[in-house]
């Protein structure tokens, strides 16, 4: 009979509609603004309404998530910042849209290059968030950030990031990518011990 298909289809929408309320009842009002509920609501087990109430609640950012790159620095006891970057230039060489500019430091007396950047620019109006710079950096000095709340009213002044704007402490990196951080630190430590062993022998 003509129309049965439509009625059956509407049954599906009705099911979706009812499911939303059943799920609300199941959570007894604790469905929103509740990290535990959010984890289930946004997984393959999700039922009912699928909405994230951004900005009040946020999706869990996976560790690998990438947005704009940032530079890492380490702080010693005296509070002096040491860039991890050695201005080797690999990130500028792999960058597909060529949005990285690096000025290498040099010793004012001898003119020899010093392994740290005087300046480091990223034009975020060109950056394609591909993450190749972070992937191929041999010193773990440039990483991809999780911060996506960067909207601005003006781009002429704000959208070329300089070194100061890009630099973030290692502790921040450890907080957004804990397992990557642990793995890299272990590899660095292993390298250090191997170097030390070589020096002794």
């Amino acid at each position: 009979m003509y129309g049965i298909g439509i009625v059956r289809g509407l049954g599906v929408t009705l099911k979706h509609f009812l499911e939303t309320y059943l799920d609300d009842i199941r959570w007894l009002g604790r469905r929103y603004y509740n990290p535990e509920a959010l984890a289930i609501r946004q997984s393959p087990k999700a039922r009912g309404a699928f909405t994230v109430q951004y900005p009040e609640e946020r999706l869990v950012t996976p560790e690998e998530f990438r947005y704009i790159p940032f530079l890492l620095y380490e702080e010693d006891e005296a509070g002096v910042k040491h860039d991890r970057c050695t201005s080797c230039g690999i990130c500028a060489k792999v960058c597909p849209p060529q949005c990285i500019w690096i000025v290498r430091s040099s010793n004012p007396e001898t003119g020899r290059p010093i392994p740290e950047p005087t300046e480091f620019f990223i034009d975020i109006d060109i950056c394609m968030n591909c993450g190749l710079c972070a992937e191929y950096c041999p010193f773990d000095a440039i990483k991809m950030d999780h911060d996506f709340e960067l909207s601005a009213y003006d781009r002429q002044s704000a959208h070329i990031y300089n070194k100061e704007r890009l630099s973030k402490p290692v502790s921040y990196y450890a907080s957004i990518r804990p397992s990557n951080y642990e793995r890299e630190e272990a590899a660095r430590a292993a390298k250090e011990t191997a170097k030390a062993a070589k020096r002794e022998s």
Binding site: V52, Y67, I68, I124, N129, F148, S151, Y153
Partner: peptide
């Protein structure tokens, strides 16, 4: 004339929402 710029390639939906709130 542009009022709000949302960086990112592409901006995630949450980033776009942030731009809209801006």
């Amino acid at each position: 004339p542009v009022d709000v710029y949302v960086p990112g390639c592409p901006p995630t939906p949450q980033a776009l929402l942030h731009g809209l709130m801006k």
